[in-house]
Write a protein that binds this DNA or RNA. Structure first.
Lengths: 262, 262
DNA sequence: CAATCGGTTCGGTGCCGGCCGAACCGACGG
DNA sequence: CCGTCGGTTCGGCCGGCACCGAACCGATTG
């Protein structure tokens, strides 16, 4: 009604608003969180997780599809939904990271289900929880990798170690490409490793049978064989792995109640 | 009414929903976008930018404050609002990055205002737009830095160069900390550099008077002196700087309409 | 002190969108 | 062919929230 010209950046922010509004609904966010497990799920499974009727879920899924946040691949009479791109997963991660800042600091998990989720889970394509953080710590400990708030680096030794381990790190791009990303773990409040390195670690862990998916949830089960090998090859003992050494303070011996101020 | 126990991860996702819902409103998103300029702004300025009444703006600001997305510092009878932490800025960046994926591909800027914004602007604490991308390109060109989808690295030569340039890159942390982050530029659809390196570049550019803020907007003006020095020291000529070499394809000579599939 | 101005609080209005039940569509299986 | 099942579409209900004008609060200024 103002008759004003449409500004370009307004188009961009309008889309951002749309994306945010889509995530800003409990039902849709729950479905997206379920899809953050990295698996493709059916509409009924998603409706069940979000505790809404199938019609309602279907509407939500249509909207998420239109916004390209998720994609669908029909198979028989099923339709499998998944997160469209790592960019979307990364966005959701960062939103969880911000949301975790306002969580009550000492809110520890309660149920067995929570415990499983905090122990080991999938963060779209890489491992999170105590497992993810412990593995990252182990790599850092041996100078195979460095992580910080703004990025991560795989050392040459780390590259060799992971290649020996069976990770496929070769890329079609230039040599120096670093597919190693620090990802803030909302349960541990510390960094684990994402990017290609994280994805390859998860793929290889699954391939070797060290971890296994548990139904349609994000939680991983660490197999008995996995526990042994994990200790043997990575020096990681999850039963001993310290929990919550302090937010954003990887090497701090004693816990400090510091906030994540900028 | 179901009487079900509260699950831990539900608390986390509830917060995420709240955060997303806050951003998922045009008025609030516009205010946040304005604050992404990195400057602290008053309530009235924000109300004006969002084209809403002061009361409405005030309500929104209260909600953003409660969620810790923004902070306020009273000064006289003014109250200056700013983005609380880089983590929040990073989240907004990633949301814009996702939103940019669904934008019409060849939607070029129209007005002079758009043009200014696309030429050079602030992305919270570092430079974006053609300027930001060109500077990043220059650093990459000289092997001072590498950028990829998941991170960035500053080489030793780059570290020396930037220190000579006047950037303060020392940190209190361990030596290998890499404060170099790839940030997807929504107007150029390519990466510019964020993190400490990006912030220090912007700080130094402002300090040297190469760029200047233009009112309460995110746009930077590149000064005449800046243009000369920029070409002299960084080898960057903004008038020649290629626009839009292709989404996520930094070194591709011809444009290709590829999508950002995972 | 009164006038001005930045900012917030209050009360009331209007609309958008999340929700479900019922009906419908298409794939599979006998 | 009909029954079953996964999934979507339709119609209507309802709650929440974005919005504004008016009033109010506190700091600054003269």
């Amino acid at each position: 009604m103002t008759g004003e010209r449409l500004r370009w950046d307004m188009v961009a922010s309008a889309n951002m608003v749309e994306v945010a509004a889509l995530v800003g609904d409990t039902a849709r966010a729950t479905m997206l969180a379920a899809l953050m497990g990295g698996q493709a799920l059916t509409a009924t499974e998603l409706a069940f997780q979000a505790r809404i009727s199938r019609p309602t879920a279907s509407e939500h899924l249509v909207r998420l599809l239109n916004a390209r946040l998720i994609s669908v691949t029909p198979s028989g009479r099923f339709r499998y939904y998944r997160i469209t791109s790592p960019l979307v997963a990364q966005m959701l991660e960062s939103m969880i990271a911000v949301a975790a800042l306002e969580m009550p600091p000492r809110h520890r998990p309660r149920s067995a289900r929570d415990e499983a989720l905090c122990l080991a889970r999938s963060c779209y394509d890489h491992m999170a929880g105590r497992l993810g953080v412990a593995v990252a710590d182990a790599l850092i400990e041996r100078d195979y990798m460095h992580l910080s708030a703004d990025g991560g680096v795989l050392t040459d030794a780390g590259h060799r170690f992971l290649c020996d381990f069976g990770a496929r790190l070769e890329t079609d791009r230039r040599s120096k490409r670093i597919f190693c990303r620090a990802c803030l773990d909302w349960s541990e409040r510390r960094y684990h490793v994402g990017g290609l390195v994280g994805a390859e670690l998860q793929r290889r862990f699954l391939e070797l049978g060290w971890i296994a998916r548990t139904g349609a949830t994000r939680a991983f089960k660490v197999t008995d064989a996995g526990k042994i090998e994990l200790k043997d090859i990575f020096g990681v003992d999850l039963d001993v792995a310290s929990t919550n050494r302090g937010l954003l303070a990887p090497r701090q011996p004693e816990e400090s109640s510091q906030r994540a101020a900028g």
